[in-house]
Amino acid sequence: MAPSRGTPHAMGGVIERISSNPRFVLGLQLGPLLFWIVFFLFIPLLLIVFYSFCLRGLGGTIEYTFSLKNYIHFFTTPIYRKILVKSIVIAIEVTLGTLLVAYIPAYFIATTKTKNRLLLLILMIVPFWTSLLIRNYSWILILGREGIINVYLMKWGIISQPLELLYTEFAVVLGLVHWVLPFMVFPLFSTIDNIDFNLVDAAKNLGANDLQAFWRVTLPLSMPGIAAGCLLVFILTVGSFVTPSLLGGPEDLMITMVITQRFLTLFDWPFGSAASIIYLMLMILFILVYDRFIGLKRILKM
């Protein structure tokens, strides 16, 4: 009615009209995410794709041509295929090892009757408070020729020669399991925590002993957590670099080490890029296959 109230009312109207426009609201909500994806993922990725079709010039320069040579070179050189296979083998070993090692604390924390479950969970991530380097160096101190294992085994006369523990695949797997453990424990914990233990009681009531009840009820019902944890651990491990470099021997090369070496030591950006793209494609393929057989939706719903 009063003209003086017209202005703020009109202003409010504009804001209201804008904010009630679902597209505008969606844009506001997705904007930062979109920015992040474009600048930190999409553009760098495009650059890598671009480089992978170029060639290395003299003295580490880049020859801007279009060539499939890098890809052909990767797949025709046996050592790269071997390294790729090795990366996957190590990742599978680590995944299975972590599953075995993580299931026990996850089960214990999920089923314990103490009130301090949160504290126990936090204790699981305590190792993460020290840097990965320090954790890896501590394995060197433990596994080395003069590490505590060898020293004590020799002192007690169990062995006469120090065991070759360090710089082996075993050391790499051990170090990696140590690193990825929490990534397995958490999804396992949340799945086991959601299991209705009346079901286990029902199984026992029907005649299954503790082990049979675990095998037929608890374990199958832990599957979503196992699937999620394994996926996470596998992907993290295939892409690991620090641990295999520090704890592995000359035989224990992983794909990430090839990539790093190409970029940083040989200044061969094009080949490094091609190797990165191959690695990325492999992971995407793996996730697609995983989704096909296990179903990511079920995992993500957890």
């Binding site: 009346n198 029902a202 026992k204 009840a213």
Partner: peptide, 20 residues
Amino acid sequence: LPPYHRDSGMVFQNYALFPH
């Protein structure tokens, strides 16, 4: 005697059917 040797059949409030 553990539950699995007692030969009792129990029906639970939330049914406790094995979902899988």
